[in-house]
């Protein structure tokens, strides 16, 4: 898998305020990365730096092997960007606008027609070719925004909240489109909609107060390193603690315990065996799965990021 984006130690100041503090972002081909974080966390600033709209105060960005700051004209050809507000010219028709967008990306004139047809078909804009953008509904304007980001078939597609303002059916269609695009391109998207992340993304990077606090695969994020244990009889807590991999045990209610530790998944068999041998009457043993909501709330409810970070590490 080739590395499409390699952004190291990005910093961005707005006057005195440090909006992005030492964030590094990496994107591989065939990967869909979700940039999560509460409002004002610095997600949009990060995305704008990745596509050259804003220059980072510090740090380097390499797009598909080309330095964005040294050779912007070459590097930007590989980027398709949809800002939080689609960058449309309402007085143009859909075809005129997309043709202009393709020309700006220096697409060969001979290819424009085919690419235009493809983008219109992918974004479900058939039949709207000659409508004025001003007369389209918000959802369709959003689709035109996505179409301009993919018309030149860039290696990297950067989408800032792509499903905002869409109805549930359109949302599903756009997610399907993102999944389909993600097979061949690399996609970074920022969003607040957590189910959307679960549906389409394979890696999650969370940003809080301008710092990157989590960067994990979705599957790793779900692992909580906790196991729920429900028994018929009371168990000996000291014995439970001595089991392999278990570091702490808490009793949630009568005969119900939560075991925490490292790599508990692999010691589930040992734990259940011990429970049966000790005649505690094993009723249930199951690993706890973290939901994204939990992770997100853990992260954002903390007053400072280090507290959130340590909690997450402990979890």
């Amino acid at each position: 898998m080739s590395v499409l984006i390699q952004a190291n130690n990005l910093h961005r100041y707005y006057g005195e305020t440090l909006a992005v503090d030492n964030v590094s972002i990496e994107l591989h081909q065939g990967e869909i990365l979700a940039l999560l974080g509460p409002n004002g966390a610095g997600k949009s600033t990060c995305l704008q730096m990745l596509c050259g709209v804003l220059a980072p105060s510090e740090g380097e960005i390499i797009i598909n092997g080309v330095d964005l700051l040294d050779n912007p004209d070459i590097a930007k050809k590989n980027i398709g960007y949809l800002p939080d507000k689609p960058p449309l010219y309402p007085e143009l028709t859909v075809t005129e606008y997309l043709t202009y967008a393709a020309k700006l990306r220096r697409v060969n004139t001979s290819q424009i027609k085919d690419l235009l047809k493809q983008a219109i078909q992918q974004c479900g804009l058939e039949g709207y070719n000659h409508r004025l953008i001003a007369n389209l509904s918000k959802g369709y304007q959003q689709r035109v925004g996505i179409a301009q980001a993919i018309i030149h078939q860039p290696e990297v597609i950067i989408l800032d909240e792509p499903t905002v303002g869409l109805d549930p059916i359109q949302m599903l269609e756009i997610r399907k489109l993102i999944l389909q695009l993600g097979e061949q391109h690399g996609i970074i998207l920022s969003t607040h909609i957590l189910p959307e992340v679960q549906a389409v993304c394979n890696r999650v990077q969370m940003i809080h107060h301008g710092k990157s606090v989590i960067n994990k695969k979705l599957s790793e994020l779900k692992q909580s390193n906790q196991v729920t244990l429900r028994l018929q009889n009371a168990a000996n807590i000291e014995q439970l603690k001595s089991l392999p991999g278990v570091t702490s045990v808490s009793e949630v209610s009568a005969n119900q315990y939560i075991l925490s530790g490292n790599k508990l998944d692999s010691s589930l068999a040992d734990i259940s065996k011990h429970c049966v041998e000790s005649n505690w009457g094993l009723l249930e043993i199951s690993p706890v799965e973290n939901t994204l909501e939990q992770v997100f709330l853990n992260l954002t409810s903390g007053d400072n990021t280090t507290a959130a970070q340590s909690r997450l590490d402990a979890a």
Binding site: G52, K76, Y81, P87
Partner: peptide, 14 residues
């Protein structure tokens, strides 16, 4: 004001 400058700025145009 309407954000379309971002299209120009993210395109390979100086």
């Amino acid at each position: 004001q309407n954000g379309s400058l971002k299209l120009l700025l993210s395109s390979p145009v100086s």
